[in-house]
Amino acid sequence: MKTMTAKEVELALAEGTTLNILDVREAGEVAAGKIPGAVNIPLGLLEFRMNELDKSKEYIMVCLSGGRSGSASQFLESYGYNVINMAGGMYNWEGTVD
């Protein structure tokens, strides 16, 4: 599984790189703040909503600590999606939040 640090994601966004960020936390967790531009699909709904994702794009998976996003990454990879897990999750995020 490919990984990026929260700092690498933050720097890429600061440089103007377009990233497809998928936040797999529950809605209540996301309400406390998410990475700007991130799309929320809770892990429990991912199986039912993965058809909303484009296999030609790369997705950066985010959760609170990196565990759920790791599971989501493995799940999506098994279906042919190109994903990167943000190691350490939002606990390591120091950038701005929406």
Rank of each mutant, 00 (worst) to 15 (best):
85 N>V: 01
51 N>S: 15
90 M>P: 01
8 E>M: 09
46 L>H: 05
52 E>N: 10
40 N>R: 03
54 D>L: 08
54 D>Q: 13
32 A>G: 06
95 G>Y: 01
82 N>E: 09
91 Y>S: 08
98 D>S: 14
98 D>W: 00
7 K>G: 00
66 G>K: 04
10 E>S: 15
23 D>W: 03
5 T>K: 04
57 K>Q: 15
60 I>M: 11
16 G>R: 11
75 F>I: 08
69 S>V: 06
22 L>M: 04
17 T>A: 13
23 D>R: 06
80 G>C: 12
79 Y>F: 15
80 G>Y: 12
46 L>I: 02
24 V>Q: 10
12 A>F: 06
91 Y>F: 11
95 G>L: 07
90 M>L: 14
58 E>C: 10
35 I>V: 15
26 E>D: 14
9 V>Q: 00
24 V>S: 11
11 L>S: 12
17 T>M: 12
36 P>S: 10
18 T>Y: 08
5 T>V: 07
37 G>R: 10
42 P>F: 07
35 I>K: 03
2 K>F: 12
64 L>Q: 14
21 I>R: 09
13 L>D: 04
51 N>G: 14
10 E>N: 15
60 I>H: 13
67 G>W: 01
27 A>H: 05
54 D>T: 12
97 V>F: 08
47 E>R: 11
84 I>P: 04
84 I>Q: 06
73 S>D: 14
79 Y>R: 12
26 E>W: 09
41 I>E: 00
6 A>I: 08
41 I>F: 04
35 I>M: 09
24 V>T: 09
60 I>K: 09
6 A>G: 08
71 S>A: 14
71 S>K: 15
47 E>F: 01
66 G>Q: 05
64 L>A: 14
9 V>G: 02
47 E>L: 02
69 S>A: 07
89 G>K: 04
30 V>P: 04
1 M>W: 01
85 N>M: 04
93 W>I: 01
24 V>M: 11
33 G>K: 10
29 E>A: 10
11 L>T: 15
33 G>Y: 09
69 S>L: 05
34 K>C: 06
66 G>D: 05
92 N>E: 15
79 Y>V: 05
11 L>V: 15
56 S>Q: 14
87 A>Q: 10
39 V>N: 12
58 E>Q: 15
31 A>D: 11
4 M>C: 13
93 W>T: 03
30 V>W: 05
